[in-house]
Amino acid sequence: MDLQILVGIFPQVLLDGVSLGFMYALIALGYTMVYGVLEFINFAHSEIFIAGAFVGVEILLGLKSAGVLEHLPWVVLLLLVLLAAMLVSGLLAVLIERVAYRPLRAAPRLIPLISAIGVSFFLQDLIRLFESIWRNAFNLVYPTIDPLTVRFEITSTIDVPLKTLVVIVAALVMLFALQFIVKRTKLGKAIRAVAEDQPTASLMGVNVNRIISITFLIGGAMGGAAGVLFGVQYGLINPYTGFIPGLKAFTAAVLGGIGNIPGAMVGGLVLGVLEAFAASYLSLLTGGAFGAEYKDIFAFSILIVILIFRPRGLLGEIVRERT
């Protein structure tokens, strides 16, 4: 074992983990916000996420075939694609809630969950159908935006492509914007009030259904943004790509304390960093006995241990209530 290599790649691995973690965090927000308000796991969120990635790839491919992709500044491109994906994914989430969850709100807990799983399959195949007709292919590759692949050499062993930094910055901006909305605005107060007690919130004059729609809109938009960032970072997407990151983001939300927004961020980061470290160090540390493909086993084993000792999640709070 070469200690110098182990230490040398450390910052690089950390950076990869952090960017992956922020992506998980963005997706996790959709799960955690909806859970906070409805105590319901929106299993279709992974498809809301991948729908955003498809909106992004369609716009970029469209611009490419129009021959303008190279002529637009990357910031403009990225903002355009992000906003479009956020809009579509956000509205998609609102629509799903209207059609598939709201009519079941009074039903036992399991029923909307089944409905969510159904919506998830439905969306996967809908995207597949659409792309098959439209492009005759449903495995799509994000067109390269050349300036985003520029690598910054930090030291001789560490270099970062611009896109990784963009993922981190974009995710941070959105996470802080969301935290501001929830903690500091009237809308955020209403969201928190609805999360705690729907009938009483309605007695205050809050239109509970509207707040639930807005919650889905915000969570869906964050998922859509994550979809674009995922596409920009990893390139290849297909209609089923959302499933694994979605499941991991859900895990991240639970790890951080489901329903808790900073928790989703912390949970995403912990999971991303664990995964990146496992991917890079497992084979180095075990002399090749375990390769990078064991990263999930390693990461999830640690998660299970954390949850055994802290079942409410890292930042999950227990509010003391007196009567």
């Binding site: 107060k189 928190r192 009030a193 705690e196 007690d197 009938p199 009483t200 919130a201 007695l203 509010v319 209530e321 009567t323």
Partner: peptide
């Protein structure tokens, strides 16, 4: 003012 007060505990 509902029975059992129903204040928003977390606010």
């Amino acid at each position: 003012v509902p029975e059992g007060r129903h204040i928003f505990n977390r606010l």
